[in-house]
Design a protein around this nucleic acid. Structure first.
Lengths: 208, 208
DNA sequence: GTCTATATAAGGATAGAC
DNA sequence: GTCTATCCTTATATAGAC
């Protein structure tokens, strides 16, 4: 997974340019829809030159996904079992929504892959990904059992948070087609909405 | 939009077989990733024979999308302004989740298209689609202003319902990778979770 | 390291026999 | 209506000069 880093500055710069261009192209067109021509022209290099840095189109895609997956699960990783349950989950929602705002291309890269059955994800989902979700779901379950959280299925809670937050990146054209925002203001409205929805859903019933 | 229906039984049968095969292939691989070879072999016809019924790959895709879009928005269309606000919205959530369970290929067909920027959707989104959403958002806003619903942004409420329900179709491999259900039982858990979340979020604060 | 030229394969679409 | 054979474009990847 961790290749030897390239030696010269030029190599680093070109590799980075290729990966940035590839993120743009793969996230917009999917793996199959993306062409090396598009990646080459977006990176400012010639097509054979791109293939000098990466052996194949698939290798570029792998390098992208491999480099991003850790970033992608970081918000869930940061869910603190020692924090206040409702506030911790609301903060998680906030981090995920911020990622949709700041890294929409990465979100669509993953979405493209998963919608199409994750043919290039190998054991990532059932491996460390599932392990992290299981761990955090157990934390949420314990919170609920201690009466500090309205008892909700922790797995479906996590799914709903992924769905609602990633929606603003993955279905961006639909959201913008309906709201017609000038810039990113609608993310602030989304943040308020999601905070209100999840606060109401998560706050445990008052035992009095 | 409404082509003349084919005349003979054989034509109807073959057209239907092609559209069903195309739904399977387009939803799994996206427009670009799908090939006429795959569609032909899945429909049991030869490639030229497929092109006898439809003039091009794009025409097959158009016929599919055009035929499905009305079905797709029906659940929102059925939201009744004269019903009980909370129950109406919960019923809408239920209808959308049922569609993800029963029509996952259709959901992924749309998801593929929208994630990639809806290049073949034309004015559907900003046209009648947006008009319907605007209409129903106004209904929800009125309910909230009458104090019959916890005041939440109606647009983001609708987005969240789309996101949470379609997630079970669009991200099916991820959901199954984490839950490892034998069949569709997890949809019942999802239904219970979403009902609880939205009931808590939508019920207006008791004015006493 | 980067380019031009090209090999090779896949895929959309058509021609024409039956 | 359906098939075989084929055209032609696009796209991945490589060869080899510079």
């Amino acid at each position: 997974m961790a290749d030897d880093p390239p030696r010269t500055r030029i190599q680093q710069k070109n590799r980075a340019a290729i990966l940035d261009a590839a993120l743009e192209v793969f996230s917009q067109h999917g793996f199959r829809g993306a062409t090396l021509d598009q990646i080459a022209s977006a990176s400012g290099l010639s097509k054979p030159n791109v293939l000098y840095y990466f052996p194949s189109k698939e290798a570029i895609h792998e390098a992208l996904v491999g480099g991003l997956i850790d970033t992608w699960v970081q918000p869930l990783h940061d869910l603190d079992p020692n924090g206040d349950p409702v506030e911790e989950i609301l903060a998680y929602v906030g981090r995920k929504l911020a990622m949709s705002r700041e890294m929409p291309r990465e979100s669509r890269l993953f979405a493209n892959e998963i919608v199409q059955g994750a043919p290039r994800f190998g054991t990532e989902i059932t491996g460390r990904f599932k392990a992290l979700v299981d761990e955090k779901a157990a934390v949420i379950r314990d919170w609920a059992e201690a009466g500090r959280l309205n008892p909700l299925d922790p797995y479906h809670l996590i799914f709903s948070i992924w769905a609602t937050t990633q929606h603003y990146a993955d279905f961006d054209v639909q959201v913008r087609g309906i709201l017609a925002p000038k810039g990113d203001e609608h993310f602030d409205d989304a943040a308020r909405f999601l905070a209100a929805l999840y606060r109401a859903g998560l706050t445990p019933p008052d035992p009095r």
